[in-house]
């Protein structure tokens, strides 16, 4: 019979899948690179963590490894999205036309000027 452990694990995996789906939907619907990255990073990190924990709950001998995977995901996933966003800005991808404020462009220009002089 299906035990309570399997049910809890399956619940974690289902929640993870739901978040993954929402992240993918955000990638399609949102207007520019930065907004899309926001949706993608948060949902996909959380979804992957949830799936890893679900697998760990179903098979308890995998739980330590799953927790290690969770730690690495939390450390590396934001780093990669941060690198993509920064690379996108530096290669001239514009912000969405509805954006309110951009303080990064002027600061970047100032930095480049200072580097060019020194």
């Amino acid at each position: 019979m299906i035990g309570i452990q399997t049910i809890i694990g399956m619940a974690f995996i289902s929640i993870g899948l739901l978040f993954q789906f929402l992240g993918a939907l955000g990638l399609v619907r949102l207007p520019d690179v930065y907004n899309r990255l926001q949706a993608a990073t948060k949902s996909i990190t959380m979804g992957a963590i949830s799936i890893a924990i679900g697998v760990g709950v179903i098979d308890l001998s995998l739980l330590p490894k799953a927790l290690l995977v969770v730690i690495f995901l939390m450390l590396t996933n934001p780093l990669s999205s941060h690198a993509i966003a920064r690379a996108a800005y530096n290669s001239g991808v514009p912000l969405w036309k509805g954006s309110v404020v951009d303080r990064y462009g002027p600061a970047l220009k100032k930095l480049q000027k200072r580097r060019g002089r020194s």
């Binding site: 992240g23 939907l25 955000g26 949102l30 930065y34 959380m46 912000l95």
Partner: peptide, 24 residues
């Protein structure tokens, strides 16, 4: 993190997508 995901879900599923983005 959980709140962030609910927030993303709300913004993505909302028909008009309430966005007010910017870099601060």
């Amino acid at each position: 993190m959980v709140l962030a995901n609910i927030d993303v879900a709300y913004r993505v599923l909302h028909p008009r997508m309430p966005l007010r983005p910017g870099i601060v």
